[in-house]
């Protein structure tokens, strides 16, 4: 089947309580970001399994973005630390498969970060376009 767009496909993991409202607000305010961005909500970014990230790459996603709560996480003060660990672990798995570790990124997105989310998506799209160019 023909691809709809050449724009890199990004999977975003977003937290239900804090990042989701920020991403929803980007839509509400009609702020543009790439239509190749797909969002899965989870309770806490530290609960994302590297297995899911690897599954996304296996299914043809060009990049994975983790919209985390950072210091605002209401579950654990170690949220950023644990999320970093799972990203590092995923990057090792990615390297073993020849996937550039730059294809995964994390940033804190809070409930009012609509513009920040859109600009992260624009930047990440640019990075992925470059990486895709190199890969070809």
């Amino acid at each position: 089947m023909q691809k709809l767009t050449s724009s890199p496909k990004i999977l975003v993991f977003s937290t239900e309580k804090i990042s989701d409202p920020g991403i929803d607000q980007a839509g509400l305010r009609k702020i543009h970001y790439s239509p190749s961005v797909y969002v899965i909500s989870v309770p806490c970014s530290a609960g994302i399994k590297p297995k899911w990230i690897m599954h996304a790459f296996a299914q043809g996603f060009d990049g994975v973005f983790i919209a985390a709560d950072g210091h605002e996480c209401s579950y654990t003060p170690k949220c950023s630390e644990l999320t970093n660990e799972l990203i590092e672990h995923s990057q090792k798995l990615m390297q073993a498969k020849g996937i550039d570790p730059k294809r995964i990124r994390m940033a804190a997105i809070c409930s009012v970060c609509a513009e920040q989310f859109a600009s992260h998506m624009a930047n990440f799209t640019r990075i992925l376009v470059e990486l895709n160019g190199k890969a070809e």
Partner: peptide
């Protein structure tokens, strides 16, 4: 229900 235990 944070799920932090699952990835580790």
């Amino acid at each position: 229900g944070c799920g932090v235990c699952a990835p580790v």
